[in-house]
Amino acid sequence: MEKRDTKAEIITAGTAMISLQGYNATGIDAVLKQVGVPKGSFYHYFGSKEEFGLAIIDRFAERYDQRLHTFLQDEEVTPLNRIRNYLESGLARLEQNQCSKGCLIGNLGQELADQNERFRARLDAIFGNWKERFAACLREAQNAGELTRDVDAETVAGFILSGWEGAILRAKVMKSPQPLRDFISILFSCVLCKGKESRD
């Protein structure tokens, strides 16, 4: 018989509940009830709710980083098409859940950045890592001739990250994926278009 991974089950249940209702509204008792374990089990694995929240963030970030790696380092397609494929995949996922979940890291950033410095610093580091993945892909696009050299890869990477997270927020509020569609359309027609190389 396979041994039960109670800690992983608690994190999985907590992730699902926090994704839907937020960190502050998610009680430890409700998470444990869903998993079917006593409260003592929780404190065996986590010293506090804060540590539990950080574990959820770390687990989500690890898995999401694998997702970014899959898309943004896919050598079967050109660098700009990697970014497009990633965004189109995100659009499809949001449509599947009726624009109800959004991005866990973005949601927690809005909820907790002003309340808890440990959460704020961890979330900021994750966003920084995501931004660098976009920047690396944009630099590859420049090397491949898909994007002009006068584009600042770091700045545009930050724009993609901020614009996408904002579009996800608006999609949740509107209960419509249209903000994501609009962002993708404008990004590729106005920002990531090849244009003309600047001349000195």
Rank of each mutant, 00 (worst) to 15 (best):
residue 133 R to Q: 14
residue 88 E to G: 01
residue 113 A to K: 13
residue 100 S to I: 01
residue 91 L to Y: 04
residue 112 L to M: 13
residue 93 R to C: 13
residue 127 F to P: 02
residue 108 L to D: 04
residue 88 E to D: 10
residue 111 E to P: 06
residue 116 N to V: 04
residue 76 E to Y: 07
residue 107 N to P: 03
residue 92 A to N: 09
residue 90 G to A: 06
residue 78 T to M: 11
residue 103 C to A: 07
residue 89 S to R: 10
residue 123 L to I: 15
residue 77 V to F: 07
residue 127 F to Y: 13
residue 107 N to Y: 00
residue 86 Y to F: 15
residue 134 F to D: 06
residue 118 R to N: 15
residue 120 R to T: 01
residue 102 G to K: 02
residue 93 R to E: 14
residue 105 I to V: 10
residue 103 C to E: 05
residue 132 E to K: 12
residue 108 L to Y: 05
residue 82 R to G: 00
residue 77 V to R: 11
residue 114 D to K: 12
residue 95 E to L: 05
residue 98 Q to I: 07
residue 93 R to Y: 09
residue 77 V to S: 04
residue 111 E to T: 01
residue 120 R to D: 07
residue 126 I to A: 01
residue 100 S to N: 06
residue 124 D to N: 11
residue 95 E to P: 02
residue 82 R to K: 07
residue 77 V to M: 01
residue 85 N to P: 03
residue 117 E to G: 06
residue 104 L to S: 03
residue 125 A to I: 03
residue 93 R to F: 15
residue 95 E to K: 12
residue 97 N to I: 01
residue 76 E to T: 15
residue 83 I to L: 04
residue 132 E to M: 12
residue 116 N to H: 09
residue 129 N to F: 08
residue 83 I to K: 02
residue 76 E to C: 11
residue 97 N to A: 03
residue 130 W to H: 13
residue 133 R to C: 04
residue 105 I to E: 07
residue 101 K to V: 14
residue 129 N to E: 13
residue 128 G to M: 03
residue 89 S to G: 09
residue 81 N to S: 10
residue 111 E to W: 04
residue 79 P to H: 03
residue 115 Q to K: 15
residue 131 K to G: 08
residue 133 R to D: 06
residue 118 R to D: 12
residue 124 D to T: 15
residue 81 N to W: 10
residue 120 R to C: 07
residue 91 L to N: 04
residue 132 E to F: 10
residue 118 R to C: 05
residue 112 L to E: 10
residue 113 A to N: 14
residue 133 R to M: 11
residue 92 A to L: 09
residue 80 L to P: 00
residue 110 Q to Y: 13
residue 107 N to S: 05
residue 98 Q to G: 08
residue 83 I to H: 00
residue 94 L to I: 11
residue 97 N to R: 03
residue 119 F to P: 00
residue 85 N to L: 06
residue 107 N to C: 09
residue 90 G to C: 05
residue 90 G to N: 12
residue 81 N to P: 05
residue 104 L to W: 00
residue 110 Q to A: 10
residue 92 A to Y: 05
residue 116 N to G: 00
residue 81 N to V: 08
residue 114 D to Y: 08
residue 76 E to A: 14
residue 102 G to E: 00
residue 115 Q to A: 15
residue 87 L to D: 05
residue 90 G to F: 05
residue 134 F to K: 01
residue 94 L to V: 11
residue 104 L to E: 06
residue 98 Q to K: 12
residue 81 N to E: 09
residue 107 N to V: 02
residue 87 L to S: 04
residue 98 Q to C: 06
residue 123 L to D: 00
residue 96 Q to K: 12
residue 120 R to S: 08
residue 101 K to F: 11
residue 119 F to C: 08
residue 121 A to T: 09
residue 81 N to G: 03
residue 119 F to V: 11
residue 116 N to P: 02
residue 120 R to I: 05
residue 128 G to Q: 02
residue 134 F to H: 03
residue 78 T to R: 12
residue 126 I to V: 14
residue 85 N to H: 10
residue 127 F to S: 09
residue 89 S to M: 09
residue 128 G to K: 06
residue 92 A to P: 02
residue 94 L to T: 14
residue 81 N to K: 10
residue 109 G to H: 11
residue 115 Q to V: 12
residue 112 L to R: 02
residue 98 Q to Y: 08
residue 109 G to M: 15
residue 88 E to N: 11
residue 79 P to C: 00
residue 88 E to P: 04
residue 114 D to W: 10
residue 90 G to P: 00
residue 78 T to A: 14
